[in-house]
Design a protein around this nucleic acid. Structure first.
Lengths: 188, 188
DNA sequence: AGCCTGATGTCATCTACTGACATCACTCTA
DNA sequence: TAGAGTGATGTCAGTAGATGACATCAGGCT
């Protein structure tokens, strides 16, 4: 056994979510989170770049997984199908625990600064997917548009999924939103 | 003549952009901006909610104008045409001064916090447009998707416009991106 | 002349965040 | 096995963004 309990990062993540849920993001101080996790505020900032990032550092993993899925997609797929495959991979990561997703989403939606951070994470993923598409030889603007459209589809689908009363599969929600986008853009 | 020079807000906006350009956002302190504008830092925060907002408070105007255009669009237009009309109105506001747009864009792209703020402003506009579409009786998810797709089109078109070597009309760039999105979603 | 108002300044304070340095259980090596 | 090295953490001091409370004062109103 080490000098300190291991897993400080996880403890900080859990403590932060709980406190943000209970008292709100603004009312929670970094020192509170650190106390609850049994470390000091200085340690918090060694694990997370800022007070918001504690809710988002797992997003990098999601971006990697979906990029990997994009790169693994067969060359015969259309651009949009490739993007859909990438989003499916992302959905697999979070689609299993809707309660956690709901809590996290509630916290984020309740605070403008957190919404900002969420948006830039999605934008980052979108940019990564666009790069991946370009690697496949897809035209520059088309790659950006496809990735951005995919990001929009994901946002809308996620919102619908997390707010849904009944059970709904995130992948299904994404697929439905894709179809709806196709229908939308089909009529001039 | 009053006790103070009028137009403190405009002076602060100009001073901030100039200093952010010259030294970068992080290296610029609010006190510097205030000094240059001939006021104190406290006054800065009376005009702008935070250090970033000084670059973005005009965005509300853009959202209003484009929403107005959306509401004024004839009922015969398709959903996507309505969104395109709204974006045209937004483009009219900033499409005339590409040099200013370029400077502002350079400053924003150089800093992650500013990119975040930009994204939430666009998200706000997108949400407003989606609401406007719902008022027209358009289905909930379809409204969100159309607005998000429009936002994506705008982002991509703006980027292309602001980086373009030759003269390019922002409205044209938007229209081209819309066409490209249609082509993209036409193939399954 | 005296009062009111609104924009600004001044001051105190909080809190996020950072750099520099100290500490100490654990590990590796001579 | 003693001693050096390592890495995660604590401690402390400091910067800067942001906010509340109160003071100031030119210009307008009565």
């Amino acid at each position: 056994m080490g000098r300190w309990e291991p897993g400080a990062g996880d403890r900080l993540r859990e403590a932060a979510l709980a406190l943000y849920l209970e008292h709100g993001f603004d009312q929670t101080m970094v020192a509170d989170i650190a106390d609850r996790a049994g470390v000091t505020a200085r340690t918090f900032f060694r694990y997370f770049a800022d007070k918001r990032e504690v809710l988002f550092d797992r997003a990098a993993e999601m971006a990697e997984k979906s990029l990997a899925a994009l790169e693994a997609a067969p060359a015969t797929m259309s651009t949009l199908e490739v993007v859909a495959a990438a989003l499916d991979a992302a959905a697999d990561l979070i689609g299993h625990d809707r309660e956690l997703a709901r809590q996290r989403h509630a916290v984020i939606m309740a605070n403008a600064d957190l919404r900002e951070r969420e948006l830039i994470k999605l934008a980052h993923m979108s940019a990564a997917l666009a790069d991946g598409l370009r690697q496949r030889g897809i035209d520059d603007t088309e790659a950006s548009l496809a990735a951005e459209a995919g990001s929009a589809v994901y946002r809308v689908a996620f919102e619908r999924w997390v707010d849904a009363d009944a059970d709904l599969d995130l992948r299904d929600a994404i697929r439905q939103s894709f179809d709806q986008l196709r229908a939308l853009t089909a009529s001039p």
